[in-house]
Protein backbone atom coordinates (compact mmCIF):
# COMPACT_ATOMS: atom_id res chain seq x y z
CA UNK A 1 0.00 0.00 0.00
CA UNK A 2 2.72 2.39 1.06
CA UNK A 3 4.92 1.28 -1.79
CA UNK A 4 2.22 1.71 -4.38
CA UNK A 5 1.63 5.26 -3.13
CA UNK A 6 5.34 5.95 -3.63
CA UNK A 7 5.05 4.53 -7.16
CA UNK A 8 2.02 6.71 -7.82
CA UNK A 9 3.91 9.83 -6.74
CA UNK A 10 6.91 8.98 -8.95
CA UNK A 11 4.62 8.27 -11.90
CA UNK A 12 2.71 11.53 -11.52
CA UNK A 13 5.94 13.55 -11.18
CA UNK A 14 7.35 11.87 -14.30
CA UNK A 15 4.28 12.68 -16.32
CA UNK A 16 4.32 16.27 -15.09
CA UNK A 17 7.92 16.44 -16.27
CA UNK A 18 7.03 14.92 -19.65
CA UNK A 19 3.84 16.80 -20.46
CA UNK A 20 3.89 19.84 -18.14
CA UNK A 21 6.34 21.97 -20.15
CA UNK A 22 4.19 21.52 -23.23
CA UNK A 23 1.09 22.68 -21.36
CA UNK A 24 2.91 25.74 -20.06
CA UNK A 25 3.99 26.54 -23.61
CA UNK A 26 0.36 26.30 -24.73
CA UNK A 27 -0.44 28.84 -22.01
CA UNK A 28 2.27 31.30 -23.06
CA UNK A 29 1.16 31.15 -26.69
CA UNK A 30 -2.04 33.01 -25.76
CA UNK A 31 -0.19 35.84 -24.05
CA UNK A 32 -1.19 39.36 -24.97
CA UNK A 33 2.33 40.71 -24.41
CA UNK A 34 5.59 39.91 -26.14
CA UNK A 35 7.14 38.66 -22.88
CA UNK A 36 7.02 34.93 -22.34
CA UNK A 37 5.16 34.58 -19.08
CA UNK A 38 3.07 32.07 -17.24
CA UNK A 39 0.31 32.32 -16.15
CA UNK A 40 -0.22 34.33 -19.34
CA UNK A 41 -0.99 38.01 -19.03
CA UNK A 42 -4.22 38.70 -20.87
CA UNK A 43 -5.47 36.70 -23.78
CA UNK A 44 -4.88 37.14 -27.48
CA UNK A 45 -4.51 35.13 -30.64
CA UNK A 46 -2.04 37.61 -32.16
CA UNK A 47 0.89 35.16 -31.97
CA UNK A 48 -1.11 32.55 -33.84
CA UNK A 49 -1.87 35.09 -36.49
CA UNK A 50 1.81 35.97 -36.68
CA UNK A 51 2.90 32.31 -36.83
CA UNK A 52 0.41 31.58 -39.59
CA UNK A 53 1.36 34.61 -41.67
CA UNK A 54 5.14 34.50 -41.29
CA UNK A 55 6.46 33.83 -44.83
CA UNK A 56 9.35 31.62 -43.65
CA UNK A 57 6.92 29.43 -41.69
CA UNK A 58 4.48 29.22 -44.58
CA UNK A 59 7.23 28.18 -47.00
CA UNK A 60 8.68 25.81 -44.41
CA UNK A 61 5.31 24.20 -43.85
CA UNK A 62 4.78 23.58 -47.56
CA UNK A 63 8.33 22.25 -47.96
CA UNK A 64 8.09 19.96 -44.94
CA UNK A 65 4.67 18.70 -45.97
CA UNK A 66 5.66 17.92 -49.55
CA UNK A 67 9.10 16.37 -48.90
CA UNK A 68 7.68 14.25 -46.05
CA UNK A 69 4.82 13.02 -48.27
CA UNK A 70 7.18 12.27 -51.17
CA UNK A 71 9.74 10.61 -48.88
CA UNK A 72 7.20 8.45 -47.04
CA UNK A 73 5.45 7.42 -50.29
CA UNK A 74 8.73 6.53 -51.96
CA UNK A 75 9.81 4.57 -48.88
CA UNK A 76 6.57 2.60 -49.03
CA UNK A 77 6.94 1.90 -52.75
CA UNK A 78 10.47 0.61 -52.17
CA UNK A 79 9.89 -0.97 -48.77
CA UNK A 80 6.61 -2.90 -49.13
CA UNK A 81 7.79 -5.17 -52.00
CA UNK A 82 11.04 -5.82 -50.15
CA UNK A 83 9.26 -6.59 -46.86
CA UNK A 84 6.93 -8.91 -48.78
CA UNK A 85 9.84 -10.78 -50.37
CA UNK A 86 11.69 -10.97 -47.04
CA UNK A 87 8.64 -12.46 -45.34
CA UNK A 88 7.49 -14.82 -48.07
CA UNK A 89 10.59 -16.25 -49.68
CA UNK A 90 13.60 -18.01 -48.33
CA UNK A 91 16.76 -17.23 -50.21
CA UNK A 92 20.44 -17.07 -49.62
CA UNK A 93 21.71 -13.83 -48.16
CA UNK A 94 18.23 -12.99 -46.80
CA UNK A 95 19.56 -11.94 -43.40
CA UNK A 96 22.12 -9.76 -45.15
CA UNK A 97 19.48 -8.08 -47.33
CA UNK A 98 17.28 -7.54 -44.28
CA UNK A 99 20.20 -6.00 -42.40
CA UNK A 100 20.99 -3.77 -45.35
CA UNK A 101 17.43 -2.45 -45.45
CA UNK A 102 17.64 -1.61 -41.74
CA UNK A 103 21.15 -0.11 -41.99
CA UNK A 104 20.09 3.55 -42.31
CA UNK A 105 19.13 3.41 -38.61
CA UNK A 106 22.81 2.96 -37.79
CA UNK A 107 23.71 6.25 -39.43
CA UNK A 108 22.74 9.27 -37.31
CA UNK A 109 20.32 11.31 -39.44
CA UNK A 110 22.48 14.40 -38.98
CA UNK A 111 25.36 12.51 -40.63
CA UNK A 112 23.01 11.19 -43.30
CA UNK A 113 22.12 14.77 -44.17
CA UNK A 114 25.79 15.70 -44.16
CA UNK A 115 26.71 12.80 -46.47
CA UNK A 116 23.85 13.63 -48.84
CA UNK A 117 24.94 17.27 -48.95
CA UNK A 118 28.56 16.36 -49.71
CA UNK A 119 28.25 13.37 -52.02
CA UNK A 120 24.75 13.19 -53.40
CA UNK A 121 23.23 16.62 -53.91
CA UNK A 122 26.08 17.90 -56.13
CA UNK A 123 25.37 14.95 -58.45
CA UNK A 124 21.71 15.69 -58.87
CA UNK A 125 22.22 19.32 -59.83
CA UNK A 126 22.24 20.73 -56.32
CA UNK A 127 18.52 20.37 -55.65
CA UNK A 128 17.94 20.90 -51.92
CA UNK A 129 14.32 19.86 -52.33
CA UNK A 130 15.20 16.50 -53.88
CA UNK A 131 17.92 16.01 -51.26
CA UNK A 132 15.38 16.43 -48.46
CA UNK A 133 12.95 14.00 -50.11
CA UNK A 134 15.71 11.41 -50.47
CA UNK A 135 16.79 11.95 -46.85
CA UNK A 136 13.27 11.33 -45.56
CA UNK A 137 12.94 8.26 -47.78
CA UNK A 138 16.10 6.87 -46.18
CA UNK A 139 14.83 7.53 -42.64
CA UNK A 140 11.46 5.94 -43.42
CA UNK A 141 12.63 2.78 -45.23
CA UNK A 142 13.77 0.81 -42.13
CA UNK A 143 10.58 1.83 -40.34
CA UNK A 144 8.36 0.71 -43.24
CA UNK A 145 10.29 -2.57 -43.58
CA UNK A 146 9.78 -3.30 -39.88
CA UNK A 147 6.09 -2.36 -39.64
CA UNK A 148 5.14 -4.03 -42.94
CA UNK A 149 7.14 -7.06 -41.87
CA UNK A 150 5.26 -7.35 -38.60
CA UNK A 151 1.91 -6.87 -40.39
CA UNK A 152 2.87 -9.60 -42.88
CA UNK A 153 3.97 -11.97 -40.13
CA UNK A 154 0.27 -12.25 -39.16
CA UNK A 155 -0.80 -12.77 -42.78
CA UNK A 156 -1.62 -16.26 -43.97
CA UNK A 157 0.13 -16.57 -47.34
CA UNK A 158 -2.07 -19.55 -48.24
CA UNK A 159 -4.86 -17.03 -48.99
CA UNK A 160 -2.68 -15.59 -51.71
CA UNK A 161 -1.74 -19.08 -52.92
CA UNK A 162 -5.43 -19.91 -53.20
CA UNK A 163 -6.05 -16.86 -55.40
CA UNK A 164 -3.03 -17.78 -57.53
CA UNK A 165 -4.12 -21.40 -57.95
CA UNK A 166 -7.55 -20.21 -59.07
CA UNK A 167 -5.82 -18.44 -61.93
CA UNK A 168 -5.36 -14.86 -60.67
CA UNK A 169 -2.11 -13.42 -62.02
CA UNK A 170 0.58 -12.58 -59.44
CA UNK A 171 0.17 -8.81 -59.29
CA UNK A 172 -3.66 -8.66 -59.06
CA UNK A 173 -3.51 -11.49 -56.51
CA UNK A 174 -1.14 -9.38 -54.40
CA UNK A 175 -3.45 -6.37 -54.49
CA UNK A 176 -6.60 -8.44 -53.90
CA UNK A 177 -5.35 -10.61 -51.04
CA UNK A 178 -2.20 -9.25 -49.37
CA UNK A 179 -2.84 -5.51 -49.40
CA UNK A 180 -6.41 -5.58 -47.97
CA UNK A 181 -5.22 -7.79 -45.12
CA UNK A 182 -2.35 -5.58 -44.05
CA UNK A 183 -4.07 -2.31 -44.91
CA UNK A 184 -4.44 -0.93 -41.39
CA UNK A 185 -0.81 -1.75 -40.63
CA UNK A 186 0.23 0.10 -43.77
CA UNK A 187 -1.91 3.13 -42.99
CA UNK A 188 -0.55 3.53 -39.47
CA UNK A 189 3.00 2.97 -40.78
CA UNK A 190 2.45 5.71 -43.32
CA UNK A 191 1.07 8.15 -40.74
CA UNK A 192 3.82 7.49 -38.20
CA UNK A 193 6.60 7.68 -40.79
CA UNK A 194 5.07 10.92 -42.06
CA UNK A 195 4.89 12.45 -38.55
CA UNK A 196 8.47 11.38 -37.97
CA UNK A 197 9.71 13.01 -41.18
CA UNK A 198 7.66 16.14 -40.72
CA UNK A 199 9.06 16.68 -37.22
CA UNK A 200 12.64 15.76 -38.04
CA UNK A 201 15.22 18.46 -37.43
CA UNK A 202 18.48 16.65 -38.19
CA UNK A 203 18.25 16.10 -41.96
CA UNK A 204 17.43 19.76 -42.52
CA UNK A 205 20.49 20.99 -40.62
CA UNK A 206 22.68 20.44 -43.65
CA UNK A 207 20.14 20.18 -46.44
CA UNK A 208 18.67 23.64 -46.56
CA UNK A 209 18.96 26.82 -48.56
CA UNK A 210 17.49 30.24 -47.85
CA UNK A 211 14.61 29.48 -50.20
CA UNK A 212 14.05 25.85 -49.25
CA UNK A 213 14.08 24.80 -45.63
CA UNK A 214 11.94 22.54 -43.53
CA UNK A 215 9.57 23.99 -40.96
CA UNK A 216 11.68 22.84 -37.95
CA UNK A 217 14.74 24.48 -39.53
CA UNK A 218 12.78 27.68 -40.18
CA UNK A 219 11.61 27.64 -36.57
CA UNK A 220 15.11 27.12 -35.29
CA UNK A 221 16.52 30.00 -37.29
CA UNK A 222 13.83 32.26 -35.82
CA UNK A 223 14.58 31.29 -32.21
CA UNK A 224 18.24 32.16 -32.41
CA UNK A 225 18.61 35.48 -30.68
CA UNK A 226 15.06 36.12 -29.55
CA UNK A 227 12.11 34.49 -27.95
CA UNK A 228 8.56 35.66 -28.35
CA UNK A 229 5.31 33.73 -28.22
CA UNK A 230 5.23 33.33 -32.03
CA UNK A 231 7.40 30.28 -31.73
CA UNK A 232 5.20 28.90 -28.95
CA UNK A 233 2.12 29.41 -31.11
CA UNK A 234 3.78 27.63 -34.05
CA UNK A 235 4.77 24.79 -31.72
CA UNK A 236 1.19 24.47 -30.47
CA UNK A 237 -0.05 24.30 -34.06
CA UNK A 238 2.45 21.50 -34.76
CA UNK A 239 1.30 19.64 -31.63
CA UNK A 240 -2.31 19.98 -32.77
CA UNK A 241 -1.38 18.47 -36.11
CA UNK A 242 0.29 15.55 -34.35
CA UNK A 243 -2.77 14.96 -32.16
CA UNK A 244 -5.00 15.08 -35.24
CA UNK A 245 -2.89 12.52 -37.11
CA UNK A 246 -2.61 10.29 -34.03
CA UNK A 247 -6.38 10.24 -33.54
CA UNK A 248 -6.87 9.66 -37.25
CA UNK A 249 -4.54 6.69 -37.16
CA UNK A 250 -6.24 5.30 -34.06
CA UNK A 251 -9.67 5.74 -35.65
CA UNK A 252 -8.50 3.94 -38.78
CA UNK A 253 -7.11 1.11 -36.70
CA UNK A 254 -10.22 1.12 -34.50
CA UNK A 255 -12.41 0.38 -37.50
CA UNK A 256 -10.27 -2.61 -38.27
CA UNK A 257 -10.49 -3.93 -34.70
CA UNK A 258 -14.29 -3.79 -34.61
CA UNK A 259 -14.65 -5.94 -37.72
Amino acid sequence: MKKSRLLLVITILTYIFLVGPMLIMVGTSFSSTAAVSFPPTGFSLQWYEKALTLPSFQRGFVTSLSVSLIGTTLAMLLGIPAAYALNKYRFRGKALVNGFFLSPTLIPSLVLGFALLRSFIPRIGGSVYLGLAVGYTLIAIPYIIRTTGSALSNFDFSIEEAARSLGTPAIPAFFLTVIPNIRSGLISAFILAFINSFNDVSIGVFISSPGTMTLPTAMQSLIIGRLDPTIAAASVLLMLMTILLMTLSEKLLGIKLKR
Partner: peptide
Protein backbone atom coordinates in the same frame (compact mmCIF):
# COMPACT_ATOMS: atom_id res chain seq x y z
CA UNK B 1 -0.74 7.65 -25.36
CA UNK B 2 0.49 10.39 -23.01
CA UNK B 3 3.98 8.89 -23.25
CA UNK B 4 3.74 8.44 -27.02
CA UNK B 5 2.54 11.97 -27.68
CA UNK B 6 5.83 13.72 -26.74
CA UNK B 7 7.58 11.14 -28.90
CA UNK B 8 5.56 12.26 -31.89
CA UNK B 9 6.17 15.92 -31.20
CA UNK B 10 9.13 17.52 -32.90
CA UNK B 11 12.32 17.59 -30.85
CA UNK B 12 12.44 21.27 -31.69
CA UNK B 13 9.05 21.90 -30.09
CA UNK B 14 10.09 20.05 -26.96
CA UNK B 15 13.34 22.00 -26.72
CA UNK B 16 11.46 25.25 -27.17
CA UNK B 17 9.30 24.30 -24.14
CA UNK B 18 12.44 24.30 -22.01
CA UNK B 19 13.65 27.64 -23.39
CA UNK B 20 10.28 29.08 -22.38
CA UNK B 21 10.66 27.56 -18.91
CA UNK B 22 14.35 27.90 -18.12
CA UNK B 23 15.43 31.07 -19.93
CA UNK B 24 16.66 34.22 -18.15
CA UNK B 25 13.27 35.74 -18.93
CA UNK B 26 11.58 32.38 -18.79
CA UNK B 27 8.68 31.18 -16.68
Amino acid sequence: SLATFPLLTSAIVRSICWIVLLGKKGV
